[in-house]
Amino acid sequence: MTETHTAQHDTLRQQAVDWHLRLTSGNADAGVWAEFERWRQQPDHARAYRDVETLWQQLPQPLLADRRRRQAIAARQRRKGLLRRGLNLAAAASLLLAVLAGFYPDYLQHPLADYRTRIGEQTAIKLADGSIAYLNTDTAVDVTIGPNERRVELLHGEAEFEVAHDARPFRVTAGAVTTEALGTRFIVRYDGETGAVTLQQGTVRTSRPAARGAQTDSAVLQPGQQLTFNAETLDAPRAVDLSNADAWRRRRLLMNFVPLKQVVAEINRYRRSQIRLLDPKLGEREVNAAIDIQHIDAWLEALQQTLPIQVIHAGPWVFLRSWAHVSRNQSVR
């Protein structure tokens, strides 16, 4: 199989996985099905979709095969044929899961959340109490509006909350951290381990359970302040530029005097095809960035026109390296 044919096969397989996820999401309407039928009529597409569908149906079988494998070992491997079949199924399922995890991590993460956005998507949700939650890229939330409180659990991602006036407290939890507000606007970001709360209007109190015997760890934020946290601590509130903090609402990313690696990490939240730094020193270089989220490639092109950086496109990936690194390699040859 030539390199070109291999790349075409991988692309077709990725398209088939994407179609299967769309069709089984519960949100596929007649228009989506019609589009799928047109795609399936093209050469090799129907077979690629059948392969993915077969693998998906067999996903539970590796778990069963693994349990049988342990039973077979205890019984001196009396059922070696089943074990081999189970291992083959496990390998096939692992291949499919690797494709899903590599290009579609947002499809696998929190699939039962009340509201979700995919990578690169943004949306606004009006809650039952009149509050509005603006979800940024790759975000999942659960919402409970009860008689005594209004609670949103931010499972992953970033959301801005515009809280409606109501006697019931409005609480947003992210991991072990809870932020409570009445009639205010604030942003919460959480990646599963670390996060941040940024206050735009009003007043909020952010708290987390303390160790046994200690007082609850908490802090009150004023407008224009941000508090970062992890699983163990709440940092002290600090002043931030609010125009940068909520720039994503305007489909912009604004960062001043930050390492290039931080800019790349932020951009990658909005892209399935990730950007990688080939030169670690390059990642430490401080830059100012004003990026249109919908035209990231244009920013990359401008980047290599203004800085000694080379942008390399390799299939779905993009690599950045310094021209100094290129010159050194050429001189060695």
Rank of each mutant, 00 (worst) to 15 (best):
144 T>H: 14
312 I>H: 06
212 R>E: 12
253 L>S: 03
87 L>P: 03
238 R>H: 07
188 V>E: 08
332 V>S: 09
32 V>Q: 02
153 E>W: 06
178 T>G: 12
123 T>D: 04
198 T>F: 10
135 L>C: 02
13 R>I: 02
192 G>K: 06
333 R>V: 15
33 W>R: 13
262 Q>S: 10
163 V>W: 07
318 V>I: 08
62 P>N: 04
88 N>P: 03
305 Q>D: 01
288 N>D: 10
33 W>P: 05
172 V>D: 08
204 V>N: 08
269 R>P: 06
235 D>R: 07
256 N>Y: 13
10 D>K: 11
38 R>D: 05
241 D>P: 12
3 E>G: 05
15 Q>P: 10
139 T>I: 04
303 L>H: 00
29 D>N: 15
97 L>C: 14
223 P>G: 07
171 R>K: 10
23 L>W: 00
142 D>T: 01
176 A>P: 09
329 N>G: 15
214 A>L: 11
127 L>G: 02
258 V>R: 11
214 A>H: 07
59 L>R: 12
92 A>D: 15
121 E>Q: 09
281 K>M: 14
118 R>E: 03
43 P>V: 13
133 A>G: 01
30 A>N: 12
82 L>A: 10
325 H>T: 06
131 S>V: 00
99 V>D: 14
91 A>S: 05
58 Q>P: 13
205 R>S: 13
177 V>D: 02
101 A>P: 03
262 Q>W: 09
173 T>V: 09
139 T>H: 08
121 E>I: 02
160 E>H: 05
184 T>K: 01
33 W>K: 10
185 R>I: 13
147 P>E: 10
4 T>V: 15
275 I>G: 02
308 P>Y: 07
153 E>I: 05
269 R>M: 06
313 H>Y: 13
109 Q>W: 04
101 A>I: 00
115 Y>T: 13
220 V>C: 08
84 R>A: 14
119 I>W: 08
183 G>Q: 14
13 R>M: 11
43 P>L: 07
40 R>A: 08
297 D>K: 06
266 E>Y: 06
158 E>R: 14
172 V>L: 03
193 E>S: 13
160 E>C: 09
142 D>H: 05
261 K>V: 06
266 E>V: 11
38 R>G: 04
174 A>D: 04
12 L>A: 11
54 T>G: 06
251 R>M: 02
135 L>E: 04
10 D>F: 12
47 R>F: 12
257 F>N: 12
229 F>W: 01
132 I>S: 11
201 Q>H: 14
3 E>V: 15
74 A>Y: 05
275 I>T: 04
168 R>W: 06
291 I>T: 01
268 N>R: 02
121 E>N: 01
94 S>I: 11
107 Y>E: 12
275 I>E: 01
128 A>N: 15
216 T>I: 07
187 I>G: 10
57 Q>Y: 15
29 D>Q: 05
254 L>P: 13
229 F>L: 00
79 R>Q: 15
326 V>W: 06
78 R>L: 14
74 A>G: 11
11 T>K: 11
